[in-house]
Design a protein around this nucleic acid. Structure first.
Lengths: 121, 121
DNA sequence: AGAGCATATACGTGTCAAGGTATATACAAG
DNA sequence: CTTGTATATACCTTGACACGTATATGCTCT
């Protein structure tokens, strides 16, 4: 488990990170909101902490976890050359973003419900 | 192998993608430049193609592979909320550092309901 | 048609990580 | 000190996937 990419490959870990982006959370709060067993939460948090994605502070028996920006910035940096690349493909890009906007687990806006046409080229 | 994050978790696949960002390449060219066995290249390319990261065109016996922007754009989209967090984090950190620079470093600020006389040493 | 090159796939193997269950540690309150 | 709560860790099992080797497919050229 070396690279930041392997860390965020795990869906539960991404869910935890997305949860922490709003504010810090205790293990129990994460457990409740994501509905995953407590050992699972703790183990993923350990991986995230060792990899530098989160840090924890002690509050009585609770541990409050919060985000650290650096590792995700590393992902962002890796993505940079590709952003330059897809500037040439803006049209296809926007259609795709519109399509995936309904599968983003973070928040639901509105405006999806389109029975989207099979992207059969 | 569902999510785009699992796809790019593999270092060889990331290398292939980084190679293709400049221009399209044949399998043999990828094989040479990345010094990996040909079946490995083909198998990773297959994964990338099925996941929509690349597409191939036939040129005689060669297959020319080139990038498709959408899946990486999806990663980029997932990263967006965290970018907002980074800016906010830098500001908050600076204000915090500014604040504690004029108070004792061992100070425990507890905003919890219980005034706890055991400040973690 | 046959030889040779370029690419894809099949198969067997080893490794590693995620999940579940149980238990350990730490703190709090009575 | 004992009970209850919050979190961490240990152990085991299972499944996925990456790799290597071997082979298949497909195209070109003579």
């Amino acid at each position: 488990m070396e690279s930041v990419f392997e860390i965020i490959a795990e869906p539960n870990r991404r869910a935890i990170l997305s949860l922490l982006v709003s504010s810090q959370q205790s293990v129990g709060e994460i457990e409740r909101q994501l509905r995953m067993p407590q050992p699972t939460v703790s183990k993923h948090l350990r991986v995230l902490r060792v990899a530098g994605f989160v840090e924890s502070t002690v509050d009585a028996q609770r541990r409050l976890y919060r985000l650290k920006p650096e590792p995700l910035q590393e992902v962002d940096a890796w993505l940079a050359p590709f952003r330059r690349f897809w500037s040439a493909h803006v049209d296809a890009l926007e259609r795709h973003l519109d399509r995936i906007s309904q599968s983003t687990p973070t928040k639901r806006k509105t405006k999806e419900k389109t029975a989207r046409p099979k992207p059969r080229t």
